[in-house]
């Protein structure tokens, strides 16, 4: 297939490449097991799935102003962090946490991206250049 490029807007700097994991629900990183990267929140659309090493696509963050940071920090300590995050609705707690934890994050992605991308697709993301490239479909 030919590569497809989408525009996006930088929130937290950095570039990476990896597999996509899409969440329908907002994410609270504290309710992810840091040892495995598996979401333990009851009823969450990612319950039982691991975010480790994935490029997470989700609407927004939710929950406490403190534990979002500890959730991401513990994931990083155990090498189970997501590689990058693509969000729709930026909110301060999540944005500040991504910047402090130095995890690339973007928003304002072309609507076509959401219509195209599926779990397991491989993309490259360059927050500074404001560019996402879809490299491999599942």
């Amino acid at each position: 297939m030919s590569e497809k490029t989408f525009k996006c807007h930088k929130i937290s700097e950095g570039a990476t490449e990896g597999e996509v994991l899409i969440s329908q629900d907002d994410i609270m990183f504290y309710l992810i097991d840091p040892k495995t990267g598996i979401v333990i929140e009851k009823g969450h659309s990612l319950e039982g799935k691991s975010v480790a090493g994935k490029i997470l696509v989700f609407p927004s963050g939710k929950g406490s102003s403190v534990v979002q940071a500890d959730g991401m920090y513990q994931l990083a300590k155990n090498n189970n962090s997501p590689k990058a995050m693509i969000i729709k609705y930026p909110e301060t707690v999540l944005v500040a946490t991504a910047i402090i934890m130095e995890t690339p994050m973007v928003d304002r992605v072309d609507e076509e991206f959401y219509e195209t991308v599926k779990d397991g697709d491989v993309i490259s993301l360059d927050a500074d250049a404001g560019k996402i490239v879809l490299k491999k479909r599942v």
Binding site: A69, D70, M72, Q74
Partner: peptide, 12 residues
Amino acid sequence: VALSNQDADLWF
């Protein structure tokens, strides 16, 4: 400040 006495809080 929502101090939390957790690793990330103390680290920062």
